[in-house]
Computed example of a mutant assay.
Amino acid sequence: MTARAPRIGIVVTDAYAPDDPDPDTPLLLHALRQRGAEAAAVVWHDERIDLAAFDLLILRSPWDYPDRLDEFRTWLDRAGSATRVLNAPETVRWNLDKRYLAELEGAGVRVVPTVYAASADAAATALATHDTGDGQATDRGTGSGARVVVKPAVSAAARDTGLFAASDPRALALATRIVEAGGVAMIQPEIGELTDGHERALYLVDGVFTHAIAKGALLAEGGGLRGGVYVENPVVVDATPAEHALAQDALRAVRALTDGSAPLYARVDVVTSTAFGPCVLEVELIEPSLNLHVAPEAIAVVAEAILRAAGDDPDRPVSVGTAIPGS
């Protein structure tokens, strides 16, 4: 008896910004179909889709989830009860709030120094520790300068993220707006190497490094984004041995802190600074752009990893007579 083709859903949204498309999904769908899978794009918030029709759902670009967080959490519950989801819903929930960085630090992973402020007063105190009194950046990159980054603990694509002089009233205003909306404000010292665009995003599939990307500088001083919009300029780059080791350390900590399983995919953002050495900025386990359009050699690696994951339970019953939604 011939085994049926695995049915794989690539989880997306239907509302992308014109300047922020999803380049990965068409490439992955094509690669999976070439390998005999039934693969389709699945809009995460479309309740008409029978999630149980799929053997596996792969989170790829549900990029509007920060604006619909409660709905997304509910979807994770519904999807996880209907079929297998990767990365695992337990891991995704842990990764939703960037306070996981404190847990990574507690597990011995070097991260960017961060204060988590749950009140405007706490934010003001944190900002005061960085204020040199003249409103000017001094000794950029050492962690003792007067500029800071303020951002929410739950966000994506640099939303509500700003680079300010610590004494700039706009820094406290942003932090206050975050906490008054029920969030937690993260306050970090500016790292000059990060401001200058030397961040590295290391991608790992099944725990194995595939490629590294530099996105370029994103934040404009005084708040907001350079050019006014979130635009990455991904370029394939080399990562240092120390950065590779840091990414692996971060993944080991993730496994220890979550359900113990290795993430199918991960993006570990690192920067090597004068003050702190290589340190983790973020570990993205929910919906990182894989930038497969600039690293085409990784397409086959990701597709094969997905197919291996889909083969873990090939005899799982599927709803009879349910059509697989089109891409």
Rank of each mutant, 00 (worst) to 15 (best):
M1D: 08
T2D: 13
T2S: 14
A3Q: 12
I10G: 01
T13I: 02
D19E: 13
D20W: 10
E47A: 15
D50N: 15
F54R: 11
W63S: 01
D64H: 07
T74C: 06
A79I: 00
A82N: 03
N87A: 03
P89D: 12
W94G: 06
L96S: 09
R99Y: 04
Y100W: 09
L104V: 01
E105C: 05
T114D: 00
T114I: 07
A124G: 02
A128D: 13
H130T: 05
H130R: 14
G133N: 01
G141K: 03
A153N: 03
V154Y: 06
A156E: 07
A157L: 03
A157N: 10
G162Q: 10
S167Y: 13
A171N: 12
L174G: 11
I178Q: 12
A181C: 08
L194E: 15
L194Q: 10
R200M: 11
F209V: 02
A212H: 04
A214K: 07
L218P: 00
E221I: 11
E221Y: 04
L225N: 03
G227K: 04
V231Y: 05
V231I: 10
D238C: 00
T240C: 07
A242G: 01
E243Q: 15
E243N: 08
H244I: 02
A245R: 12
L257V: 00
D259K: 12
L264E: 06
Y265P: 03
V268W: 01
D269T: 01
V271C: 11
V280Y: 03
V283L: 12
L292D: 07
A300G: 13
V301I: 14
V302N: 09
L307A: 11
L307E: 09
R308M: 08
G311I: 04
D315G: 10
T322R: 15
T322K: 09
A323M: 13
G326A: 15
G326S: 14
